[in-house]
């Protein structure tokens, strides 16, 4: 499902409180639910590599 296919929902959500609190150290990490990769990688979910170490980074270019 498109991130922006939920545009209307996102507009409704703007300014809303956290549904759950953001993840903190010690929390169980939920899997990442990706619907579109720039190029599809070999591993597409965290569950495929559990037991190893995952570094997740969110970034931009401004």
């Amino acid at each position: 499902m498109l991130r922006i296919a939920l545009l209307a929902a996102a507009l409704l959500m703007a300014g809303s409180a956290w549904a759950q609190s953001p993840l903190k150290t010690g929390d169980n990490a939920p899997d990442l639910n990706v619907s579109y990769w720039l190029d599809v990688p070999e591993f597409t979910s965290f569950s495929e590599v559990r037991g190893d170490v995952i570094l997740l980074k969110a970034w931009g270019s401004n």
């Binding site: 990490a29 995952i54 931009g60």
Partner: peptide, 16 residues
Amino acid sequence: LPAVWIIGTDGKIAFT
């Protein structure tokens, strides 16, 4: 941004 998380070998957040 940037935001970083490390998920440890136990599946828990080890750094954020």
